[in-house]
Design a protein around this nucleic acid. Structure first.
Lengths: 146, 146
DNA sequence: GGCGGAAGTGGGAAAAAGTGGTAGAAAGTG
DNA sequence: CACTTTCTACCACTTTTTCCCACTTCCGCC
């Protein structure tokens, strides 16, 4: 299970070093194949290939002319690439995603339990600062039982 | 149950010594794994991992398009890291939180029943002095039955 | 007041993680 | 078909981190 934020760097060749915390989990549970994609072009989603296959299976179960499925597939395929991790634990990020999500230099790698998300750390920080967590939000969470 | 304020120090490597008062409770009830995060970047929240998992479960029960949930997740993912306590009862505080909450030198560790909060003691003192407890606050408490 | 134990602090060495470079292969182009 | 250029995979080095050990200080009890 992937959890938390482990910032890392993408070198000028576009290789993203997987933080060792996540690397440990990968070596244990998964192989060295990944599917990297995005639905919005702003956040790169990094799936261990096994996990991606589950999603594909669920997609296959949907009627093929479901318009939302079509839209989803269009995006996933546009940004997506299958990628192998090298011996140093690095992933070559797809060119299109590097550009659209500005994946270069300092990058936040965030665990989402079954997959990872990578995003430009500066843009991430700004998004958080521009949307302060209000006391109203606190109350909403309280009402939801958290 | 964690209660009260036990000031401690963070050394220049970023290791926070857990006050023995809290250490006793941890040794009794919990393991040596923690999840450290924050919603505002000003106060570090230190959850025994078991307690954190309860929160994750409750979050998983919410609809994924709940905007407050999204906001909350973005923050706790940004600041969050899973951390292990060393043999001397110290926690290596995540780099991002050390910077944004100014967690270094003298630090207040405050018990919040199921988790701990760590904050810069000087900033804490100032916040209390700048926000005196008003009669209005007293009344609100009364209304809540306290 | 001193002695013993527990709590707190600091430092260093070994291991792991991170980084950059290079050679070879593959792809693309004239 | 041959040459050029880009890409990929591997290798070696440097830096950082982590873990462990040992010392110091504080507090309570004798």
């Amino acid at each position: 299970m992937f959890r938390g934020n482990h910032p890392t760097r993408v070198d000028e060749k576009g290789r993203l070093k997987i933080p060792s915390e996540f690397k440990r989990v990968i070596d244990e549970k998964y192989g060295n194949e990944f599917y990297i994609t995005s639905t919005d072009g702003k956040v790169a989603q990094i799936y261990p290939f096994e996990e991606w296959q589950h999603i594909e299976e669920r997609l296959a179960g949907l009627p093929s002319r479901n318009p939302t499925k079509k839209k989803f597939l269009d995006r996933i395929n546009y940004y997506g690439q299958k990628v192998e991790m090298d011996a140093q634990g690095r992933l070559l990020m797809p060119q299109l995603l590097r550009e659209s999500a500005d994946i270069k230099g300092e990058v936040a790698v965030v665990g989402q339990l079954t997959f990872l998300e990578a995003r430009n750390i500066e843009l991430y920080r700004r998004e958080i600062e521009d949307n302060p967590f209000t006391t109203e939000d606190e109350n909403t969470l309280n009402d939801l039982g958290i």
